[in-house]
């Protein structure tokens, strides 16, 4: 439990290892992916994430497991990692 905000710290399987460095990389990668649908993500105190759309609406999520449902609601459409448009954009990163 985070003593400042009362949030349970994540023990999601995808976030167990790697510490701060992995979390920073995760945030950058998530921004790259979510950016394709006009969303951005910020880390809050290494404990939770906030996702924002271009209208300034935001949602707070606990971990990368809970993130996709909230991001999808904010985007108003399905976020599919097999979407050819997303993959073409990521492949162009070089």
């Amino acid at each position: 439990m985070c003593v400042l905000c009362g949030t349970l710290l994540s023990d999601h399987w995808a976030e167990i290892a790697g510490g701060r460095r992995a979390r920073d990389l995760r945030v950058r990668l998530l921004n790259r992916v979510l950016g394709y649908w006009g969303l951005s993500l910020a880390d809050w105190a290494g404990a939770i994430y906030t996702i924002r759309d271009r209208k300034g609406r935001s949602v707070v999520v606990q971990d990368v497991g809970a993130l996709w449902t909230s991001a999808e609601q904010l985007a108003g459409r399905p976020l599919d990692p097999l979407d050819p448009g997303l993959l073409a954009a990521l492949e162009a990163d070089g």
Partner: peptide
Amino acid sequence: VDWTAFGVWLTMLLAAH
């Protein structure tokens, strides 16, 4: 495999499919 990237990818794949 970068585990962080794999975790992001698999959580998204399982959320979508």
